[in-house]
């Protein structure tokens, strides 16, 4: 009770408008809704001030940098030559930026559907009941705890090397045995057509990356699959749905809301990955103290990816099924 009285006093002091404080209202001067709103501000205050200082200000600052030539001096950044010069240079003069950008976008657009389909597939399997499911889950979520760190760089062999070794030499021994070619030979379909072989070997070479990038998405889809009510399953089996029909008519609609989360996560993840080409360019520029130019590269990239994200979401949103409107 003491708490309540205290808060009443506190809110009394805050209420300034006479309309909000009718005199004979047994002490509660501010309407309940308004009081709750004040508490809401209280709960998010810490984050709000933090994000102004640690997020919004730096964000605006870097946008300002991107329109200037910058030079670091004691106490801050010295800016000169305002204008769109950085952006102009990025798209018209930089010989690496545009190719890296298009390659990156193409890669993301190709890999994202693969990752999504693959993680739905794995999630459906891991949701079934079988012996050793816990162990299987433990293994498939393992990438979640490893793949975000520098360990994955060493595993993939693309470490920062100081430029002494060729790319092929860096590949650790794990990829030396060419199992895929052996398998193709064994099946007797090796080199039927060069193109087919290239496609197959590219796909299989990427399986490693694919599997390692799916951890979070599998968790997301698995949690959505757990949300499918048993009644839906029962009804489907009463109606004589095959597993295939069940997948398309029941599973897909129910997990479609999670599709958005998984899509955003996948796209953003590949976008901010420090080892992708565009990010490497951005980081290199800022290592060379070209902060203005680096910020311009990052912002242009961010704008393009944001636009892609918006388009993809707008399309996907039309096919999403929400049980509760």
């Amino acid at each position: 009770m003491a708490e309540l009285e205290k808060t009443t006093e506190a809110t009394e002091a805050q209420s300034t408008t006479p309309a909000a404080a009718p005199e004979k209202h047994k002490g509660l001067n501010i309407p309940y809704e308004k009081r709750k709103a004040l508490y809401g501000y209280g709960f998010i205050a810490l984050w709000f001030f933090g994000s102004i200082y640690f997020f919004i200000l730096p964000l605006i600052q870097s946008l300002i940098y991107s329109f200037h030539q910058t030079k670091i001096v004691t106490g801050g950044m010295e800016m000169s030559n305002p204008g769109f010069k950085n952006y102009y240079n990025a798209f018209r003069k930089d010989q690496y930026y545009v190719p890296a950008l298009t390659a990156m976008i193409k890669d993301t657009l190709l890999n994202t559907p693969l990752i999504i389909v693959f993680s739905v597939f794995i999630a459906v399997i891991l949701n079934q009941k079988f012996k050793g499911r816990t162990a299987a889950r433990a293994i498939f979520f393992l990438p979640v705890i490893i793949a975000t760190g520098p360990v994955i760089d060493i595993i993939n062999g693309n470490m920062s090397t100081g430029g002494y070794a060729g790319g092929s030499e860096q590949f650790s021994t794990m990829f030396e045995t060419n199992l895929v070619d052996d398998l193709l030979n064994f099946l007797g379909i090796y080199n039927i057509s060069d193109r087919l072989t290239t496609i197959i070997s590219e796909l299989t070479a990427d399986i490693m990356n694919l599997v390692w990038k799916c951890g979070i998405q599998i968790i997301l889809f698995l949690s959505a699959l757990q949300g499918i009510p048993y009644s839906a399953k029962e009804a489907a089996s009463m109606e004589g749905a095959t597993s295939w029909e069940y997948f398309w008519k029941i599973t897909v609609p129910y997990i479609s809301p999670m599709l958005i989360a998984a899509l955003v996560y996948t796209i953003v993840d590949s976008f901010v990955d420090p080892s992708n080409d565009v990010m490497t360019l951005v980081l290199n520029q800022s290592k060379q103290w070209e902060h203005g130019y680096s910020a311009a590269l990052a912002w242009a990239y961010f704008a393009i990816v944001g636009a892609i994200l918006a388009i993809v979401l707008a399309i996907i949103n039309r096919f999403v099924y929400y049980e509760v409107e």
Binding site: F54, F55, L57, P58, L59, Q61, S62, Y65, V264, V268, F271, V272, P274, M279, V282, L283, S286, H291, S294, A295, A298, W299, F302, G306, L309
Partner: peptide
């Protein structure tokens, strides 16, 4: 969630 840390690091 969406903005990568690389954008805000220098400021």
């Amino acid at each position: 969630i969406i903005v990568p840390p690389q954008i805000t690091t220098i400021p």
